[in-house]
Amino acid sequence: MSAIPYHHPIGILPDDIDHMGHVNNSVYLKWVQEAVVRYWESLAPPEAVARHLWVALSHEIKYRRPAFLDDLVVADVIAEKVEGARAAFTTMIMRGEEVIAEVRSNWCCLDSVSKRPARLAREIVARFLPSA
């Protein structure tokens, strides 16, 4: 499938740095959460954004290289698949052309009022996966 990618700049803060002098592993989860939600907000229509919330079901992170305070880092996110209320995303944390972490995550879309799983309409899914 031909997914629409999203490029999310990341700012590394002094509090992100651990006792070993690089970005703490837990910070990557914060980055992925922010990047996937911004991806949703950038492509979904405003009424769909207001009507839906996303919760993470799982993350698998492969750390390739450490990140440091002065690094310029971005998260490149793509939707891999959407089935019903579930969606799979891949997020590549990049420093220039170098992959510093690869994250595969599964998410569940919720109705913002009932907080119950909500299937996404086909036309909304098509904004992320045009060939779906």
Rank of each mutant, 00 (worst) to 15 (best):
A118C: 12
Y6T: 07
E97H: 11
D76M: 06
L13W: 14
S2W: 08
I61A: 12
Q33E: 15
A48T: 13
V125G: 04
L53I: 00
P5L: 04
V23D: 00
D16R: 03
I12M: 08
Q33K: 08
A118S: 14
H59K: 04
W40R: 03
S131W: 01
I124S: 01
K30M: 12
V125M: 10
C108V: 14
L129T: 02
L120S: 04
P9T: 08
L72V: 15
I17D: 05
G96T: 05
A101R: 01
E80K: 15
V32D: 07
H8G: 02
R127H: 03
V73C: 10
F128H: 08
S114C: 07
Y28T: 02
I4P: 02
V23M: 02
R65P: 01
V55I: 15
E83F: 09
S42R: 01
R116C: 06
V77L: 03
P130C: 09
E41N: 09
G11E: 15
P130T: 08
E34R: 13
Y28G: 03
E102M: 10
R51Y: 00
K62Y: 02
E60Y: 08
L69M: 10
A44N: 04
P14F: 09
I61D: 11
W31A: 05
A79R: 05
H19C: 09
S112I: 06
E102C: 04
C108M: 11
W40D: 04
D70W: 07
A132L: 12
D111H: 10
L13I: 02
V55D: 03
H7G: 02
W54R: 13
R95E: 12
N24A: 12
M92P: 00
E80I: 14
P66I: 07
L29C: 11
A118E: 10
V36R: 15
W40S: 02
V103K: 00
W40Y: 07
L53D: 11
E97W: 00
P66N: 05
A67D: 02
Y6H: 15
F128V: 08
S114P: 09
T91S: 13
R104A: 10
H59M: 06
G84R: 09
V99M: 06
S58M: 03
E97T: 13
L120P: 08
V99W: 00
A118R: 13
N106H: 11
V55R: 13
